[in-house]
């Protein structure tokens, strides 16, 4: 699956079809496959196709969330008094799998206004620009959605 992806990417990028370039492309694809096999990338079935539809639905939700909180941060930045109330929130996440925790941490950081400070086991420390943002994170809706992502 990854091999097909890499091959298509190479063909798209170069756009040349000379034998030497094709051979180089095949060589680099094989190299990436070997390295990712040695990194144990295939132990977690992250590339499974059946997750893709759920992943796309999650991304749509995340995009809506990003737009909403961008508006919030923009309002804060442009107002004259700079009404910030920085808050540090700590909570225990539901997701146990390392991939889930990485997705959750990155989603929190990707959303403007909230920022993952540290992840220790299932304990997340999150810095929020306003107190409202911290309360939104503590509601745990993002946590719930991420842990549903991989459940069968």
């Amino acid at each position: 699956m990854l091999a097909v992806l890499l091959g298509v990417a190479w063909l798209l990028w170069s756009g040349f079809f000379k034998p030497l370039l094709l051979a180089l492309g095949a060589f680099s694809c094989v190299l990436v496959l070997i390295v990712s096999y040695r990194m144990h990338l295939f132990d977690t079935d992250f590339f499974a196709l059946r997750l893709m539809s759920r992943l796309i639905r999650y991304w749509a939700w995340l995009a809506r969330e990003v737009v909403r909180s961008s508006m919030e941060v923009t309002r804060v930045v442009l107002s004259r008094r700079l009404p910030i109330s920085p808050t540090v929130a700590e909570f225990d996440a539901h997701c146990e799998h390392p991939v889930d925790r990485a997705i959750l941490g990155n989603s929190i950081t990707l959303t403007p206004g909230t920022l993952t400070l540290s992840i220790d086991g299932q304990r997340f420390v999150v810095h929020a620009l306003t107190e409202k943002g911290a309360r939104d994170i503590m509601d745990g809706e993002m946590d719930r959605r991420v842990s549903q992502l991989r459940s069968r």
Partner: peptide, 17 residues
């Protein structure tokens, strides 16, 4: 923004939106 962590929030607006 007054300190480092709050500045990072502002920077993340440009990175995403």
């Amino acid at each position: 923004m007054p300190n480092l962590y709050t500045r990072m929030h502002a920077a993340s607006v440009t990175d995403t939106m």
